[in-house]
Amino acid sequence: MKRREFIAGTAALFVSPRHSRAQGKRHRLGFLAVGDGSGKTLNKAELAFLDGLRSYGWIEGKNLIIEYRFSQPADRLAASVTNLIALSPDVLIAPGPQAAKALKSATATIPIVFVSVADPVRLGLVQSLSRPGGNMTGISTMVPDDFLEKRLEILRELVPGASKIALLVNPDNPMQRLYLAEGQISRTAQRLGVALLTVEATKAEELDLAFASAAAQHADAIIDWGDPLTYVEAPRIIALAAKYHLPANYLFRHYANGGLSVYGADIGDLFRRAADYVDKILKGTKPSDLPVERPTKFELIINLKTAKALGLTVPPSLLVRADEVIE
């Protein structure tokens, strides 16, 4: 053997296997998605997560395998969780409190990154925001101020004199259930001097009854608290608000396509930031060492076309504060 060939071959023994492992190993993610309502496709906010991963060099099909399972409708959740756990992924992604609770209960070892959970501490997902502990961390939607109170104030600016406002809730949502049980809703209503009545829906076919109940109780307006169910059923909810002539406030941007007003965290930004957690965990950081972060971007969107259809005049003070006005 020639000396040059011997040196090259020897070098390959030391360099190639390591290089091959670095380039060839594919990590596996388990994504318990909410979806776009079809039960098969990610929604726009969830797609931002994939953009975030690409910015860190994680490419699906190249160095990353992503297994998608869906949590909607709700009766699919248990099977989706079992499916994902059986795949032994390197990291699990949990959008929303139902998915986060379900995955937390299913594994204490696989790292979990949650997205869009209002208060993960009170829900028992983490020990504290700064020191999560355990196998879970992520991004909350919790802000220091009373977020619901701000949404109510926006509605009262749109509907001056509104004294009775319906709150659309999903009792199967553990975060909403906790807030209701603790009486926070009643305290918020008392501070603002309004009557807050709750109308419930745990599945799509119950939404019609919820809106009919709000109208029957003479609600002046309605707030969709925000939930995976109502997220995927946004078109139906917008249509029901129009049918019952109920001015509404929503949590997510995609409601602005026909919905009167939106105020909430930029969910796309939260999913994009979740990619940073995944990147760190895949590189060896433990979830317990990654503090839970809060939202930094919020959106106020007003739909003037819908306001006109409802006979409402949007005050200039609200238009000035809006991040986007749809005409």
Rank of each mutant, 00 (worst) to 15 (best):
E205W: 01
V121A: 10
P160Y: 14
I301V: 14
S213H: 04
D90S: 11
S130D: 14
G161I: 14
T109K: 13
N43R: 06
V194C: 14
V194P: 15
Q176C: 13
S317C: 00
A99Y: 12
I59G: 08
R4I: 13
K243P: 05
G258I: 04
I154S: 07
S80M: 05
A22L: 14
S38P: 00
K150G: 08
E200T: 10
I301S: 11
G134F: 01
Y277M: 03
A215W: 11
N257K: 12
V320N: 02
F70I: 11
G9Y: 03
I223Y: 07
A265G: 02
A162L: 10
N83L: 08
A78M: 03
Y56Q: 06
K286P: 04
D208K: 04
L155I: 13
V143H: 06
R272G: 02
L300N: 04
D266T: 07
P132W: 15
I154A: 09
T188D: 03
V34D: 07
P132G: 15
D227L: 02
T141P: 02
I301D: 08
T285H: 01
R273W: 09
G183F: 01
E153A: 14
E327V: 07
A74W: 06
L178T: 06
V199G: 05
Q217D: 06
S186F: 11
V320W: 02
S38F: 00
I110G: 04
F6D: 00
S38V: 02
L178I: 02
F298T: 11
E299C: 00
L246Q: 01
P315H: 12
P73Q: 01
A239K: 13
I59E: 14
F271N: 10
A265N: 01
A48M: 15
L29D: 09
I267E: 15
D279Q: 13
S80A: 15
G134S: 04
G134C: 03
P111S: 00
K2R: 13
K243F: 02
A256D: 07
F114A: 03
E153W: 06
I59W: 14
A201I: 12
N43V: 05
P17C: 08
I165S: 09
S55N: 09
L197H: 12
G134D: 01
A212K: 14
I139D: 09
P287E: 09
T285A: 11
R156V: 00
G258N: 01
P228D: 07
L148H: 03
F31N: 10
A201E: 12
V278K: 04
D269W: 00
D146G: 04
T82E: 15
V126Q: 09
T109R: 12
S288H: 08
S88C: 00
L207S: 10
A322D: 03
L312S: 05
K283F: 04
M142S: 13
I222E: 10
A162H: 09
S186M: 11
S128D: 09
F70T: 06
E233L: 01
L260D: 10
S130P: 00
S20C: 05
I112D: 03
V199E: 09
R76P: 10
A256Y: 05
I223R: 01
K308S: 03
H218Y: 05
K203G: 06
L310F: 15
A45N: 14
A234M: 12
L129E: 11
S116N: 14
A307W: 09
Q127V: 13
